[in-house]
Amino acid sequence: MASGFFKSLPALIIAIVILVLTLVAGRVVRAIVTAGMKRARVRSALITLAQNLISIVSWVIGLAIAALVVFPSVSPGNMVAGLGLTSVAIGFAFKDVFANFMAGVVILGRKKLRIGDVIECEDVYGRVEDILIRETHVREPDGELVIVPNSYLFDNPVVIQTDRGLKRQELVVGVDYDTDMREAKSALMEALKSCDTVNKNELTQVQCVSFGGSSIDFKLLWWANSRPADQRETYDEVAFAVKDALDEAGITIPFPQSTLSFRPEAVPVPVKGVRAEEAGEESEDEAESRKNK
């Protein structure tokens, strides 16, 4: 055993040197890649992923070379085949984990989904607090935290409500049929212009959209800040301004109404009269039958 140890001692020393060089080379490559990614303003989670991948790849290569030096009987082909079978088995066992991992890489590589964005994906709605390599943390409006697998965000459509600083808001208002339409449109437009939360640099519109059952409906379109709190505030301000403007102009916002018709053909026939007529017809039939007899 001692003679065998001394015979393999040079190979062990070379293997240790290879592992030390692997450690140094891995750190150098990590430092270079990290510096380049930080200059490119890549997300921190993606930088951490790149660092971990560089460490894993460097150690796999270093250990493989060291094993070939210590065990000369092991061929590179056998080692590659063994790694291939192992990776296939691990892939089948952790396919969901790898799916979330790859989806996280894609999401982190996107520029559209950022921390602080308000998103809506199927039944998930809230503000993005953190994006990790396998999951995304979304804070709902009621304060609850939802941990969403990245594959869920990757497979389903995601609506990013705060992608732009502005978002269009709308409000439908009905006026009475006796109202002059041009006067109503002018009053609604003035109400929009008087609101501070309405962005004056974007297009503001008031359009007639339908003749409803009880009212002529106008749709108000304007732009405001895209944050949900700002959207609620601008809707509230515009609603108050519209009501005040219509009241000042003497324009009524009608409630649902029903029209009663008193035309002769619309008057129902009394049930007693129908029964009397039916009884009279039966008596005449009976009289006719007696005559025939």
Rank of each mutant, 00 (worst) to 15 (best):
V274E: 13
F262T: 00
A266D: 05
S283H: 02
Q231T: 07
P270E: 01
P270K: 05
Q257P: 05
P256E: 05
Q257G: 09
P270L: 07
E248I: 13
D285C: 05
I251H: 01
S258M: 14
I251N: 00
E265Y: 14
V271E: 11
E284L: 15
V267F: 15
P254K: 02
E265T: 07
A224V: 03
E233V: 04
L246Y: 05
F255Q: 07
V267I: 13
D230S: 13
D217Q: 08
T252Y: 15
R263D: 10
P228T: 01
A229D: 06
G273H: 13
Q257A: 14
V271C: 07
A245P: 02
P254W: 00
D244W: 13
V242F: 09
E286G: 12
V242C: 04
R263G: 04
E284Q: 04
A239W: 06
I251K: 02
S226Q: 08
V271Y: 12
T234S: 14
L220T: 01
A249G: 03
D236N: 13
D285R: 14
S258Q: 07
G250Q: 03
A276E: 15
K219F: 03
F240P: 00
T252A: 12
S283Y: 09
A266K: 10
D247Q: 12
E286Y: 08
Y235H: 08
P256Q: 06
R232C: 00
T252E: 13
P256L: 03
T259Y: 08
P254N: 02
L246W: 15
G250H: 06
E237V: 00
L221S: 14
G250V: 04
E233Y: 06
G280M: 13
E281Q: 14
G280P: 09
D217I: 06
F262Y: 03
E233D: 11
L260K: 03
Q231V: 08
